[in-house]
């Protein structure tokens, strides 16, 4: 399955602005740390099909971490 929403997790700073804005509430923070020492945001594989590709998360993200796609 191709992902609708992809995070460049090494650039994430766990500000959670995407978490707060997601209408489907499917963005979570990992328990693991990324290279900068933050818990990066992600959408689990099983939640990918709940994504509606609204891209609000990407518009809100201060670090240009998120890319969003939608099916043809």
């Amino acid at each position: 399955m191709e992902k609708r929403v992809v995070f460049n997790e090494d650039h994430c700073k766990s500000c959670e602005l995407c978490v707060g804005i997601c209408p489907k509430k499917i963005i979570k923070l990992r328990t693991e740390l990324n290279r900068q020492g933050y818990h990066p945001a992600f959408v689990s594989d099983e939640d990918q099909d709940k994504c509606i590709s609204c891209a609000l998360c990407a518009r809100m993200c201060p670090d240009a971490v998120i890319e969003v796609r939608r099916p043809q």
């Binding site: 460049n8 590709s53 990407a58 240009a64 998120i66 890319e67 969003v68 099916p71």
Partner: peptide, 18 residues
Amino acid sequence: MIPVYTRPKSLTNVVTHY
């Protein structure tokens, strides 16, 4: 899949200090 939102190419691909 077609892109809805992608990183602008005029941004360098680095982590900001902000």
